[in-house]
């Protein structure tokens, strides 16, 4: 089995890096938490990894807007190496603040050739406040390698700025028809609904987006917070609890194992 190496990106204010590292290791990857300054110093550092995770937190305090300052830093220092990483067939996952960063850096949904965020944003919850609650997520695409098609999952959100807003109706239609919508917020029975089913007022209940390759996923909910049964809010009411968050990490690790034979993969792109 090929060794899967995952890098968990740290930056000022990122705070979900340890549990994300743990989740990746539970899924069989070798994970390493690395500060963004180290990558800016040595961009080749990314070469030895096949998965980049931008974890949750409040990068730079979410000053100006959530994820904005870190996105700006990435745009000005790391956009090229990250784009190369994706072109090589490798995986990028953005969770919560990481999702906000990917969107604000224009990496998600990555439809336009421009290097900027233009079509979609993530803004303040309709409730105007931070909320921690659990949500059901229904996958909307078959393309995304992190997702098990058809499997509804249950995860916590914890954010104040998670409302996905799309520029206009036409763009939203394209997102849907082109399979960019990764997850929608639904109720236990799989139906869309108002608050709190859709906890932040996201347009079309969008909870996550994927890019054109399906190898980049960003989502507001936290899969790394449900990798052990006792993290489920009602585990004490049930004997069988599946740790839904593990599917995201396990699928990523499995994809890398199946698509990257050698540990020392570097430049060519053997992705099927």
């Amino acid at each position: 089995m090929a060794q899967v190496n995952a890098i968990v990106l740290r930056a000022a204010g990122i705070n979900c890096d340890m549990e994300t590292e743990y989740a990746l290791e539970l899924a069989g990857a070798r994970a390493q938490r690395v500060h963004i300054n180290r990558i800016i110093e040595d961009k080749n550092l990314l070469d030895e990894f096949q998965i980049i995770v931008l974890p949750g937190g409040f990068s730079y305090g979410d000053d100006v807007a959530a994820g904005k300052i870190l996105a700006n830093q990435i745009v000005h220092h790391l956009l090229e190496p990250i784009q190369k990483f994706i072109e090589q067939g490798k995986l990028v996952l953005g969770i919560c603040n990481g999702f906000q960063v990917l969107v604000k850096a224009g990496i998600l949904p990555g439809r336009t050739s421009s290097e900027r965020q233009e079509e979609v944003t993530i803004t303040y919850n309709d409730s105007a406040k931070f909320e921690d609650r659990w949500v059901y997520l229904a996958p909307q695409t078959d393309r995304c390698v992190f997702i098990e098609p058809g499997r509804q999952i249950y995860l916590p959100i914890a954010h104040g700025e998670g409302k996905v807003v799309v520029k206009d109706e036409a763009t939203l239609e394209q997102f849907k028809s082109e399979g960019h919508v990764a997850f929608k917020y639904v109720d236990a029975n799989g139906r869309e609904g108002d608050y709190p089913v859709n906890p932040n007022g996201s347009v079309d209940s969008i909870a996550g987006l994927t890019d054109t390759t399906g190898r980049v996923l960003g989502l507001m909910p936290h899969p790394e917070r449900f990798v052990r049964p006792t993290q489920h809010p009602r585990w004490s009411r049930s004997d069988n609890v599946d740790s839904d968050g593990m599917t995201i990490f396990s699928n990523a690790v499995k994809y890398v194992q199946e698509n990257f034979a050698s540990r020392h993969f570097s430049v060519s792109s053997p992705c099927s």
């Binding site: 989740a23 949750g56 914890a158 936290h222």
Partner: peptide
Amino acid sequence: RQYDHEVQG
């Protein structure tokens, strides 16, 4: 609910 009571996992 305004407090993140689940961070750190």
